[in-house]
Write a protein that binds this DNA or RNA. Sequence first.
DNA 1: AGGGAAATGTTCTTGAAGGTACATTTGTAT
DNA 2: ATACAAATGTACCTTCAAGAACATTTCCCT
Lengths: 218, 218
Amino acid sequence: MANLTADDKRGWTQNPEGVKRDILAVAVSEFAARGFSRAKVDDIVARTQTSKRMIYYYFGDKKGLYTRALEAAYLKVREGEAALDLGHLRPVQALSKLVAFTFDHHRENPDFIRMVMIENIHQAEALSASETIRELNIAAIDKLREICERGENEGVFRRGLDPVALHWHISAASFFNVSNRPTFSTLFGDDVFTDDGQSRLRIQTVKAVLAIARADVV
Amino acid sequence: MANLTADDKRGWTQNPEGVKRDILAVAVSEFAARGFSRAKVDDIVARTQTSKRMIYYYFGDKKGLYTRALEAAYLKVREGEAALDLGHLRPVQALSKLVAFTFDHHRENPDFIRMVMIENIHQAEALSASETIRELNIAAIDKLREICERGENEGVFRRGLDPVALHWHISAASFFNVSNRPTFSTLFGDDVFTDDGQSRLRIQTVKAVLAIARADVV
DNA sequence: AGGGAAATGTTCTTGAAGGTACATTTGTAT
DNA sequence: ATACAAATGTACCTTCAAGAACATTTCCCT
């Protein structure tokens, strides 16, 4: 029963890649929803077309599956980011667009956010071990660094602007917006999470980041 | 062996309040460090002067202990905030001070931050059930609301400024700074977490929030 | 002083969940 | 067509950890 594409009249068909994809997709969703310990291998398998056996066959153990799921989540998100083209925009516009995009992109990928939350709870143990992910993120910041350089050269951004610090600010808002929604809305209501509220927050976040970057803001 | 204050020559002395405090303090630290499922009741008890029996006697079950630990963490942090006096400052200075204070205060209370992270992973289940905590937070935002009103009246802040949205921005930076340190430093290095880096981030965060609030920023 | 309630110590039970053993089928190379 | 490796199915085992049972001591009230 390990076939995802079609046929199964009798017995089963081998489909290693399909099985792996199937398991990984469910694992991301399950780990993201419940965290490492609360996610149960049996539950993951139940949402799969395959058997528990295959998880251990392909991923070794629960920890191995988790690590691969984390990588898969990063890969998917970074792929989405790669589509963004900012090269033709002036620095201020490019930065504004990057912030707004990141804000929306994080909103659209709650599973990714939650995987990162879980990693942080676990002191980034699995993340540290993954060379793959480190490379992905270096690429992610290069885009921002290029904008900073152009902005400085044109004199519209402060000199000595640190792209990493800027990335920190952009991430903080965009990440917190998703990660802390449960507690925040419980304590302060849902207003900032309505469409209008989110739209206001996005604008404010752009303004806040520009205030840090621009040379003409006191 | 359940005495925290002094004597134990033979047998033991009853000390209900001390025992509860002892358990709660360890529970906060343990839950914050490992999350709900990975925190083990036996481990908590091991760091305590009491026995497992007492946890179930006073807190019912693990979940009950967790809820009380969450409340304890909130209480402690909100107490620290209450010490902050802003009434005599002009709005811009008051807001600046509040932001800088929050930034530092979150840094100094990583256990609280981590408890909130865990709550968010768990969809704020325990938080929703706690009336106590809700009240604490309403009080927390009143201070900010008062600053906003004064600032609007003096014409230095925009009209229609939403204190909750402002709180969102302040929290986002201050919270993310602690919550995402493990993954962020793994991916982008420790620079922003050195004393100098943190000092720069704090200044930038103040500037960013002011840019949102002030009437004279484009 | 003594009796009942509150607090604490000690030991055991049990279920869930991660992981393994063993068996079988499918695909592929010669 | 056959033999071997890869892929999958099924059933079981083991351990860990939450919580309960049972026993004892301390405190307070009259």
